[in-house]
Design a binder for these strands. Structure first.
Lengths: 148, 148
DNA sequence: CGCAGATGATCTGACGTCAAACGAAGAATG
DNA sequence: CATTCTTCGTTTGACGTCAGATCATCTGCG
């Protein structure tokens, strides 16, 4: 029930980029808060999810696909490995790279975390109807150059 | 001509929040690049624009409305003042706060910078038709709780 | 008035992100 | 094979952001 209708709406009206960035910042905050509740960082979650769906990957592949800097990926994998969620095995065909592999504990951790995602998404985007969410997804897809 | 159709599209499909954040990151990069070309930071531009449209403000008001941290606003105003784009006059009714005021030079600087904005926006959102841009603006508005 | 608490601007310290440099291991060229 | 170049993972250093402390000023209350 905030009583502050001022300059921003006008700005958002003429600057689509600013509106997009602010919406993203809001959503990112929600994601971080939710992740903290699960005691599994957003990056860690995404890494586990990708390993789960596409199988063992190099840190390089994880970095590029998830757009997480290589140096950040190091500590994400460190933490996941310390928690027993992944193993770092050397790729026998290229001993420079790892084959980061999800463990049973990691799979377990992932499915647990995944259970809370629908509720989190629903809450974060509760201002939009299901149709509108689909619209938004489509528009963002186009913006990101996703072929589909 | 990139030949990398892999995991991300699938992720973006089921995680609207991730899609939103990545789109925002892309747009923010474009904004920074464009701002660098204008040698006027995004924050500085927004401050000038707000001062231009709503008149003199305290740094507090600028901070809250533009969602820029107070401590960051200090250096933004420092730089703008050093360049002669704003003046910091004490608010006579409350000498704790400034009345940050745009100068003629600042106005000039702003209108110059504003001229390049339509082209920048058009380029950044070229993947969307005008109708789709309007749709996106509407959806983001709802998400941000803008009354309209 | 005199004092406690709130508020605006500023400064400082901690944190996360990212670019650049590095070492190890492969690929390519002669 | 040797030399050069590239790639993967890691470390380091710089930078921007933000929370908390600080100082000056204002407000409210006795």
């Amino acid at each position: 029930m905030q009583v502050r209708p001022t300059y921003f709406p006008q700005l958002a009206g003429e600057r689509l980029d600013i509106a997009l960035c602010r919406a993203s910042a809001t959503v990112a905050r929600a994601a971080d808060a939710h992740a903290a509740g699960q005691s599994l960082g957003v990056g860690q979650h995404l890494v586990l999810k990708m390993l789960y769906t596409v199988g063992p990957c190099s840190q390089q592949a994880l970095s590029e696909e998830l757009r997480i800097d290589r140096s950040v990926m190091v500590t994400i994998c460190d933490d996941l490995e310390r928690d027993g969620c992944v193993r770092r095995e050397r790729n026998p065909h290229d001993r420079r790279s790892y084959a980061v592999t999800i463990t049973d504990a990691g799979r377990q951790r992932l499915v647990t975390a995944e259970r809370s995602i629908p509720g989190y998404l629903d809450d974060t985007f509760k201002a939009l109807t299901p149709d509108e969410r689909t619209q938004l997804a489509t528009l963002l897809g186009k913006l990101l150059g996703i072929s589909g």
